[in-house]
Design a protein around this nucleic acid. Structure first.
Length: 738
DNA sequence: CCCTGCTAATCCACG
DNA sequence: ATTAGCAGGG
């Protein structure tokens, strides 16, 4: 091959092999920072140069962001677009929008996110007459999700589950899916389940897509679940042109059904597959790579792999243990600020953490120093009430069967159609054999309602008429959204409400949403349904416009696939990493180790790992201390500060205890026997007792709360001077005055 | 029917 | 520490 070929010149021999293996099954094992994206994009460019139509190439990435980057790089290489690059969810959504009519469903379905699904699950529970506190909707949805990951139908799940809570979940699954169908909605899991079912059950569809797509590439293959693998396997079955890329050491999504044994399945399904290994690391300093490699070597179930580097050792990896999370946050913020002052690009600085809640102290510390930052990922924006309201209105305009959205908007803003009114309308709808939304849009049918309800319902009905009249496809999403905000009276209502709640900029999020709509109108364009399908699959990560230089904050999971010059990882604490819940789910620590490994290998030049002895949790301070994983980094090229303390004994942090009354509660230590506590002077404290506190003075106990017993209860005190405080009795420092 | 104030639950990760 | 959900008064 020609070494001067621009598509090959910049590649090492391993990468060239990957690029040149154009047809047939290929497994690319690519360690962190080994130039995998480069190999994939050059491979796509090569395919196009060899005459494959761009639209016949499907590249599946893990995030929208990765998809955008890959698309841009391919376009830059070949000078033209058209390659199908997207996430599994994105591909399936557009597939279903086109193919649902084959089975008589509308392509204008609504994609339900987690909170929408919870709302629907609550209706399911109501129908089943189950108590939502006993059967938590989110738990049921998780069970259903696991069945869906395994491609089990509701009927099959019922058959497979005889045991108590599992049987309840299976019955909920049956009803939930029926209601989803009625609402013409799909959950994130459904997108893949329905797409695969269509492909498998309908030969016409299958052949259409197998002809349409001749080459399939999958990135982050270690994080695919069985359904996703079945999807790409089916799509590529006719040609066998399936190229998967991944690294088992970066498998961090087993909790959503990802199955690393897909690697083995791929090889047994494709015996002729070519295996290419990329083991040259181009990203990190030798010290960073060394520490990360020593860490991951502690995993037992792993094919040993060694990443090479030609980089200099660089500065040492630093491990710092602080007294508490405040100190930790302050130190990280100081260090980031100093780096910026010394000329570093803030965009090249990142702070990672295991759980989203850990971002808060860091955010405050950065804010206090005036350092600009952005929180990457998450759903904060799309979870805002006003954004959800507006989306619900738009959704319902497209899909009148969407009950979850309907119930959100029927009385938003308030128009006298509260719970009782809606119940009455539901009853009437049932009587008339109509769907509720249908009824709401039908003036004649509403005539029999009681005076007040009827008036409100008719007004709503009229409003729908006005909105329908002003809705014209092609005029753009933004103008319609603006009109909707006015016609429904939402703008005025929200302004008063938000101002009362103390918001300085009540239209901030709505404005951002409108900008998003305007962007859609001016770039991609399309119907309102297209727009809704797009934004349903977006996270805040994708909404981030170029907002200038800022330090990046994100979870370790979100960091996958990214790289930064400076990386700080906070909260490498006992009970946080490995996270205790991972233990409770009887998952071993290997995935948690991989998670830290992923975070570490994002760093190019500078890596700092932080832990704290004390950390605030639910507003209270708990003892944590450095994680045992920090011992596995070795000494070579690693500098430690404040990390001499012995590790805590590995007792699960969230140990469950049962008290004398049989009530279960969670805590660090075993409950102190009631016998000991009985003797304590505060044990006599009752509602109405007079008490004294060193900081707050005298006061009166107005209540005792919480599931705990004895001195572990919370006590509410109204101090003289009208200050109300809630304290844990044992640590309250109160003196009983009576 | 709407608003207020109190209570209980929350925080493991993602599209 | 924050917030969603609920009971009781206007």
């Amino acid at each position: 091959m020609d070494a001067h070929d621009p598509l090959l010149a910049s590649l090492n021999p391993e990468q060239r092999t990957a690029v040149l293996a154009l047809h047939g099954p290929v497994l690319m094992v690519a360690g962190a920072g080994s130039g995998k994206t480069r190999a994939i994009t050059h491979r796509i460019a090569m395919l196009i140069r060899e005459g494959v139509a761009p639209s016949a190439i499907l590249a599946v990435t893990f995030t929208n962001k990765a998809a955008r980057e890959m698309r841009a790089r391919v376009e830059q290489l070949v000078g033209r677009g058209g390659v199908r690059v997207g996430t599994f969810h994105g591909f399936c959504a557009s597939f279903l929008r086109e193919e649902f009519p084959v089975i008589g469903r509308s392509g204008d379905f609504t994609i339900y996110d987690e909170s929408d699904s919870v709302a629907l699950m609550k209706k399911v529970l109501a129908e089943m007459k189950l108590d939502p506190t006993q059967n938590r909707p989110a738990d049921l949805l998780r069970s259903i999700g696991r069945w869906k990951d395994k491609f089990l139908t509701p009927a099959e799940a019922v058959q497979a589950s005889t045991f108590g809570s599992e049987a309840v979940a299976a019955r909920a699954y049956v009803l939930f899916d029926a209601m989803m169908l009625k609402a013409n909605a799909c959950s994130f899991d459904d997108l893949m389940v329905q797409a695969l079912r269509l492909l498998l059950d309908h030969e016409v569809v299958r052949q259409r897509w197998q002809r349409r797509i001749t080459h399939v590439l999958v990135d982050e293959f270690q994080d695919t679940n069985p359904i996703q693998y079945a999807l790409v396997r089916t799509l590529s079955a006719a040609t066998g042109n399936l190229c998967v890329t991944g690294d088992q050491d970066q498998s961090i999504y087993s909790w959503r059904g990802a199955d690393p044994s897909n690697f083995d399945n791929f090889l047994s399904d494709h015996p002729t597959a070519r295996i290419v290994k990329l083991e040259q690391n181009y990203r990190s300093s030798a010290n960073i790579l060394g520490a990360a490699s020593r860490l991951i070597a502690h995993n037992k179930r792993r094919i040993p792999k060694t990443l090479r580097t030609e980089a200099a050792p660089g500065e040492p990896v630093r491990v710092v243990v602080f007294n508490d999370d405040q100190e930790e946050a302050a130190a990280v913020a100081d260090s980031a600020q100093r780096a910026v002052q010394e000329g570093a690009d803030p965009n090249e600085i990142a702070v990672f953490y295991r759980t989203n809640s850990l971002s808060l102290p860091v955010e405050r510390a950065l804010m206090a120093r005036g350092v600009r930052y952005r929180v990457v990922g998450g759903l904060e924006f799309f979870a805002r009430a006003e954004v959800k309201d507006l989306i619900a209105w738009l959704r319902w305009m497209v899909n009148r069967q969407d009950t979850v959205s309907f119930e959100r908007i029927i009385n938003t803003p308030p128009r006298g159609l509260g719970d009782t009114a809606v119940e009455r309308m539901e009853a009437l709808a049932l009587e008339r054999g109509m769907a509720l939304p249908q009824l709401a849009a039908n003036a004649a049918a509403l005539a029999t309602l009681p005076e007040r309800t009827r008036k409100s319902a008719l007004a709503f009905c009229k409003l729908i008429g006005v909105l329908e009249a002003s809705f014209q496809e092609g005029r753009g999403v933004r103008p319609f959204a603006e009109e909707l905000l006015e016609q429904t009276g939402y703008s005025g209502w929200w302004a008063t409400k938000a101002t009362k709640a103390g918001s300085l900029d009540p239209f901030g999020n709505i404005g951002q949403f409108l900008t998003l709509a305007a962007e859609f109108d001016s770039t991609r364009g399309g119907t309102l349904a297209d727009f809704l399908a797009d934004i349903s699959l977006l996270t805040d990560l994708d909404r981030t416009v170029d907002d200038g230089p800022a330090v990046n904050l994100m979870t370790l999971h979100t960091s996958k696939g990214l790289e930064f010059d400076h990386v700080f990882i906070v909260g490498v604490d006992y009970s946080i990493l490995p996270h205790v819940w991972a233990e409770l789910e009887s998952r071993d620590d290997e995935e948690e180790r991989r998670l830290l490994h992923v975070g570490m290998t994002r760093a190019r030049e500078r890596l700092v790992l932080c832990a704290a002895q004390l950390r605030s949790r639910f507003g209270q301070t708990v003892v944590t201390g450095p994680s045992a994983l920090l011992d596995e980094l070795g000494r070579d090229g690693v500098e430690r500060f404040g990390d001499e303390a012995p590790r805590r004994d590995p007792r699960p942090f969230r140990q469950r205890w049962r008290d004398a009354d049989g009530d279960e509660w969670a805590g660090i230590d075993a409950p102190v026997g009631d016998d000991d506590d009985e003797a304590h002077p505060l044990a006599q404290l009752r509602e109405g007792s007079r008490v004294f506190h060193a900081d707050w003075g005298c006061g009166e106990v107005t209540g005792l709360r919480g599931a705990a017993r004895g001195l572990d209860r919370k006590v509410v005190v109204l101090f003289d001077g009208n200050q109300r405080r809630t304290l844990i009795l044992r640590h309250s420092g109160l003196t009983l005055l009576d």
